[in-house]
């Protein structure tokens, strides 16, 4: 485990998500994509949100940016407090003008499709500066763009600023996307599977870059991933999501060493370990439940090898150890 996994000293939370419920109102019914999620991210901290596709991790991040699919997506309950402001209460105009790209930003999944093919890198990386009036005039914007390209370690930025996305490799494009996201020095950066489309060697470089950027600026990072390896490599804390809820959260080492929730254990058992004695990888049997009409009790119960009668009631978040919580009856403190 690397130094990234050491928990930073206790700081006031930069971001606090409380009881967030985001529903998608579709024709076939209301999908409870995010159904009562609590999260916290401190300054300079990286929180990993881990879960399989459909677990609600992307919807959670889109809720924070207030960029839910229109017109179906809506935040129906809860609060998202960033730097003391509840983003849920802001108007769309305020979000666009003062928050998105400026204080909260995003690195999207696929670097190959996240850049506009018909505009130069300089134009695109310079755009956030222009949107938020942080650099005025052509020369100032260009200087700022070169500086931010240098920060994401793009070699000879002055020469490459007029190049187009297709002239960059996948890894370099992800650096450009990252440059756009950090251009205005945001307080919180959401990275949605930022490395899943890249080669493994490039993945490592990208994670190193995120770590450097965080060390220099103290940005809080939410790393959304289905890859526990990525989470282990870069996150301080992780929150495991299943079917729209956080089932277990805590310090990354604690979660990896002492997973409590059977779903977390299932996830950990399904990754191969090099060097260990070869044994069968265990897949978690079954499918996640429909979020249109989710079961009343524990949502993992139908797939859970340790199912009990009590699982018909939804378990509260039990404190397993300091900062380590699990929503599972197995974690209930014994009297």
């Amino acid at each position: 485990m690397t130094d990234a996994a050491t928990l930073p000293a206790v700081r006031p939370p930069l971001l606090k998500v409380e009881n967030l419920k985001t529903y998608l109102h579709l024709k076939r019914g209301v999908v409870r994509a995010v159904d009562g999620v609590d999260l916290e991210v401190a300054e300079g901290e990286t929180l990993g949100i881990v879960g399989e596709s459909g677990s609600g991790k992307t919807m959670t991040s889109l809720s924070m940016l207030r960029l839910l699919p229109k017109p179906s997506g809506r935040i129906v309950e809860g609060s998202i407090t960033l730097d003391g402001t509840d983003l849920v209460k802001l108007s769309e105009a305020e979000m666009a003008r003062d928050w998105r790209g400026q204080r909260i930003s995003m690195v999207s999944q696929d670097p190959l499709t996240s850049l506009n093919p018909v505009y130069s890198i300089g134009d695109q990386v310079g755009a956030p500066f222009r949107y938020h009036n942080l650099a005025k005039g052509r020369g100032a914007v260009r200087k700022a763009v070169e500086a931010v390209l240098a920060r994401v370690r793009i070699p000879s930025p002055a020469k490459r600023i007029d190049d187009y996305p297709h002239q960059f490799s996948g890894g370099m494009r992800q650096r450009v996307v990252t440059a756009m996201a950090i251009a205005c020095s945001p307080r919180l950066l959401i990275a949605d599977e930022p490395t899943s489309a890249l080669d493994v060697t490039i993945q490592v470089q990208m994670m190193e870059l995120f770590r450097e950027l965080q060390r220099d600026s103290g940005v809080g990072i939410i790393m959304i991933t289905h890859d526990l390896g990525v989470a282990a490599g870069i996150c301080h804390r992780v929150a495991v999501m299943y079917a729209g809820r956080v089932v277990e959260s805590g310090d990354v080492r604690e979660i990896f060493r002492h997973p409590v929730h059977p779903y977390t254990r299932g996830l950990l058992n399904s990754i191969p370990h090099l060097g260990r004695k070869r044994r069968r990888l265990e897949a978690i049997a079954g499918q996640p439940p429909s979020l249109i009409d989710p079961p009343k009790g524990c949502r993992f119960a139908a797939r859970c090898p340790q199912r009990m009668a009590r699982c018909d009631d939804y378990p509260p978040q039990f404190e397993v150890s300091t900062g380590h919580q699990a929503a599972c009856w197995l974690a209930e403190p014994r009297p």
């Binding site: 960029l67 666009a96 790209g101 018909v118 755009a127």
Partner: peptide, 26 residues
């Protein structure tokens, strides 16, 4: 519906600019 327009939105691009500059040229 493309990623780069979504990315533009996440960076706070005014909708008018996204539509008439970044989307229209494509």
């Amino acid at each position: 519906d493309s990623d780069y327009i979504r990315m533009g939105r996440a960076l706070g691009a005014p909708e008018r600019l996204l539509v008439w500059k970044y989307a229209f040229r494509n």
